[in-house]
Nucleic acid binder design. Sequence first.
DNA 1: AAGTGGTCTAGACCACGTA
DNA 2: ACGTGGTCTAGACCACTTG
Lengths: 242, 242
Amino acid sequence: MLTSEKGYISLYMQIKELLVTKIRNGEWSPGNLIPSEINLAQEFGVSQGTVRKAITELVENNVLNRKQGLGTFVSNHDPHRALFHFFHITDNKGHKVLPNSKVLSCRRKQASRKEVSKLQLPAATPVIRIERVRNFSARPTMIETITLPAEPFGNLVDADDRELPNTLYELYEKQYGITIHSADEQLRAKAASGHDAKILNLKVGTPLLEIERVAMTLDRTPVELRISRCSTENHYYQNTIL
Amino acid sequence: MLTSEKGYISLYMQIKELLVTKIRNGEWSPGNLIPSEINLAQEFGVSQGTVRKAITELVENNVLNRKQGLGTFVSNHDPHRALFHFFHITDNKGHKVLPNSKVLSCRRKQASRKEVSKLQLPAATPVIRIERVRNFSARPTMIETITLPAEPFGNLVDADDRELPNTLYELYEKQYGITIHSADEQLRAKAASGHDAKILNLKVGTPLLEIERVAMTLDRTPVELRISRCSTENHYYQNTIL
DNA sequence: AAGTGGTCTAGACCACGTA
DNA sequence: ACGTGGTCTAGACCACTTG
């Protein structure tokens, strides 16, 4: 990182990078307390205000969180955060409920052209492709196709039998040390295919909301491609523009 | 505003409110330069840093914008901002192009139950309802139904003949002094009705992306309800989760 | 009581845009 | 050259949490 168009890099930006590096290296783990602003200022040889500004921006990025009187912590992307930050489907009353999910298949494949492009992979990279159906109050509502590069997610194929956890992003963080910070989504209306219709118990051609999401790390390296097809009979996609 | 759960209100928060008040009163108008941080600090009897913190948060809210070496300005929500902040439809290459729009009808009506609820109006309030079709490269792609309270937007019915500007939000700001700062959107997949199909030149039942948006002022007073039905044959709705 | 983040101050120097 | 915002410092006091 540390790129700049100005010929110089402000101190607090450099501190910010140093902090991020410590998190990436695992020196500071999600959920753990980091040193106090005063201590960090001494360690880096800058004033507390400079460390403070760096930390403030990382808090705004959801990388750190502060608790007055306690200290500053590395954010752990627990199910709650995943739910409220990355999950935009709510029922028609506007309530978010995390659905159950059942894996239909989980296989190692060659990356398709789309996967190669969306995940910025070399051609013909092996990937893991997971298909699952998500139920809201026992009603199948969403079909998800999730693609991950086989490196490093290869051993996920063992998840063929048992159910995967509802919050995959938590798994990525705990098992692989990869934290999802942002995502790009493309939404379209699509007619249900025969396959969709059968699984979701709908008529072929029923309009479905298709969400194509690329999930990325803090430095915007793509990690996961997820295509969801969702019945919007009893649910909708909620977005707030601030 | 000025509510707090802590029994006190920090100085910079109070300054922030004072600044917002000046904007709301029209003392400072969109696009205009506000006094320098130093001058404001003297006027309010606080340090520059405190004014700075207040301004920083307003910049983050898109209420003000700073230009180094020049000063701080009240944001005017020009077409560019409206386009990039509130308009999420892009073509399949990811390019944003603002569509043309043609008004189909513009009438004064009684607010429907949905309009009453979404716009938080008293029952049976008169509203203006505008229907228009939006074209991307001469192809009808989107139908919008826009509802506004007749008070203060009543004279918009005169817009029946001539075309309304593409960027209504700019109109609200310039004509009525109402600035849209945020919006809540609900997205669903819906089958094209006969009316939709005729106007968009599609088959009845074609899946359309329906976007139901409530646009709000800075203090989250609802101003406009807009229901868009969009063909996602050549376009999609783009959302970035940060 | 001790330590943390939260706020606030006063002053310094730098980079940018205008004149 | 001047005034603006952008960054940085050093120090102060307050509010919150834990021991």
